Simulated assay, not measured.
Amino acid sequence: MDRNRLVSVIMPTYNAGKYLADSVSSILDQTYLDLELLITDDGSTDPVTLDILHKIEERDSRVDVLYLDHNHGAGYARNKSIERARGRYIAFCDSDDRWTPDKLEKQIAFMNQKQCALSCASYIIFNLNEQKSVGINIAPPKITFSMMKRDNKIGCLTAIYDTQLLGRKYYMPTLRKRQDWALFLLILKDCKVCYSYPSQPLAVYCRHKHSISSSKISLAKYNIAVYRSILGYGWLKACFYFAFLFLPTYILKLMKRKQDSYCFVKRKG
């Protein structure tokens, strides 16, 4: 493998079961061949998950699995994978999401063209219970630190950053949830801008009844925690940002996503 082209794919797993095989296949079947898949299993007890993990690491030398003895949370598991990463590029995919076959090929070429340290892409929303595409999240063409303070605009399953330009110093903050938003805020403090691949969605976010993001209201305290622990805001300022910047921006984003998804589903139909 060419270390200057190598992409280290970070995947946490925890009782992912039947969804895991499709996610892993979507990574290993990429048209871009210089990759390693670094899985950290966060104390799974599900025999289906463990069986899949044992089989894929035996079958493909690009797969490296670390088994934790008990559950720590997705952020901790991702960091254990980042610690083992050898690649120039760090990419993320959760164990129930999927990539399009040409995601890495197109996105890495785009990053080289733009000379950017951080990139993302739009993604399709797929309902696993109904087994159909139900929407799309279209990423803004250019995302700045100021925009990210208002709301997370980078889908973690599409994000890639370049350690050659940024260094190997970024890890998920030790928050139980919203670590991805916190991480991208820290990166954007340094690189200033994230560019989005413009032509098509490059990943599939799989929504099901167990998805963490299915209960956004319950995540309010974690959003406030990001303002406090990552940006260093006091309690009152953090609550102000959440109430008057985050919530209005997030509601507008949901409305836009709903309209975009309606057009996407109608066009497909």
Score class of each variant (00 low, 15 high):
residue 88 R to D: 02
residue 121 A to I: 02
residue 103 K to E: 06
residue 88 R to S: 08
residue 145 F to G: 03
residue 126 F to L: 11
residue 161 Y to T: 00
residue 107 Q to F: 03
residue 116 C to F: 06
residue 132 K to E: 14
residue 90 I to V: 11
residue 160 I to R: 06
residue 113 Q to C: 11
residue 104 L to S: 10
residue 81 S to F: 09
residue 124 I to A: 01
residue 128 L to S: 13
residue 56 I to F: 14
residue 102 D to C: 03
residue 125 I to Y: 07
residue 156 C to Y: 06
residue 128 L to E: 10
residue 87 G to L: 00
residue 53 L to P: 09
residue 146 S to F: 11
residue 82 I to E: 05
residue 66 L to R: 10
residue 75 G to W: 02
residue 100 T to A: 13
residue 159 A to S: 12
residue 162 D to C: 00
residue 76 Y to G: 03
residue 47 P to K: 12
residue 132 K to H: 04
residue 56 I to W: 14
residue 101 P to V: 01
residue 84 R to F: 03
residue 74 A to I: 11
residue 73 G to W: 01
residue 154 I to D: 09
residue 123 Y to N: 09
residue 123 Y to V: 02
residue 100 T to G: 01
residue 152 N to I: 09
residue 99 W to R: 06
residue 84 R to G: 02
residue 125 I to Q: 10
residue 102 D to I: 06
residue 112 N to C: 02
residue 50 L to E: 11
residue 57 E to P: 02
residue 151 D to Q: 14
residue 101 P to D: 05
residue 89 Y to R: 05
residue 136 I to K: 03
residue 152 N to M: 09
residue 91 A to L: 00
residue 99 W to A: 08
residue 151 D to V: 10
residue 113 Q to R: 15
residue 93 C to W: 00
residue 145 F to S: 12
residue 105 E to H: 13
residue 66 L to H: 09
residue 134 V to H: 06
residue 78 R to C: 11
residue 94 D to S: 09
residue 147 M to A: 15
residue 142 K to P: 05
residue 62 R to W: 10
residue 140 P to D: 13
residue 48 V to Y: 14
residue 95 S to N: 09
residue 136 I to C: 12
residue 156 C to D: 07
residue 108 I to Y: 03
residue 144 T to W: 06
residue 76 Y to N: 08
residue 101 P to A: 04
residue 133 S to P: 08
residue 90 I to P: 01
residue 49 T to M: 05
residue 79 N to E: 03
residue 113 Q to K: 15
residue 100 T to N: 09
residue 102 D to F: 06
residue 70 H to Y: 15
residue 166 L to M: 08
residue 80 K to A: 10
residue 134 V to R: 07
residue 146 S to C: 12
residue 88 R to Y: 07
residue 159 A to C: 08
residue 48 V to E: 15
residue 155 G to W: 04
residue 119 S to K: 03
residue 106 K to D: 12
residue 100 T to M: 13
residue 136 I to Q: 06
residue 80 K to R: 13
residue 100 T to F: 14
residue 125 I to R: 08
residue 117 A to K: 02
residue 76 Y to R: 11
residue 130 E to N: 08
residue 96 D to A: 10
residue 88 R to P: 01
residue 165 L to Q: 13
residue 93 C to N: 13
residue 161 Y to P: 02
residue 127 N to E: 14
residue 123 Y to H: 12
residue 148 M to R: 05
residue 116 C to P: 03
residue 153 K to E: 10
residue 138 I to W: 09
residue 51 D to H: 15
residue 97 D to I: 07
residue 51 D to E: 15
residue 123 Y to S: 07
residue 100 T to S: 12
residue 62 R to Q: 04
residue 107 Q to R: 02
residue 107 Q to T: 08
residue 165 L to V: 01
residue 91 A to S: 15
residue 82 I to A: 03
residue 163 T to M: 09
residue 99 W to L: 15
residue 70 H to E: 15
residue 45 T to N: 14
residue 77 A to K: 05
residue 153 K to F: 15
residue 114 K to L: 04
residue 48 V to Q: 12
residue 66 L to P: 00
residue 107 Q to S: 08
residue 86 R to Q: 11
residue 97 D to V: 09
residue 129 N to T: 06
residue 152 N to T: 07
residue 96 D to S: 04
residue 126 F to A: 03
residue 97 D to A: 12
residue 54 H to E: 15
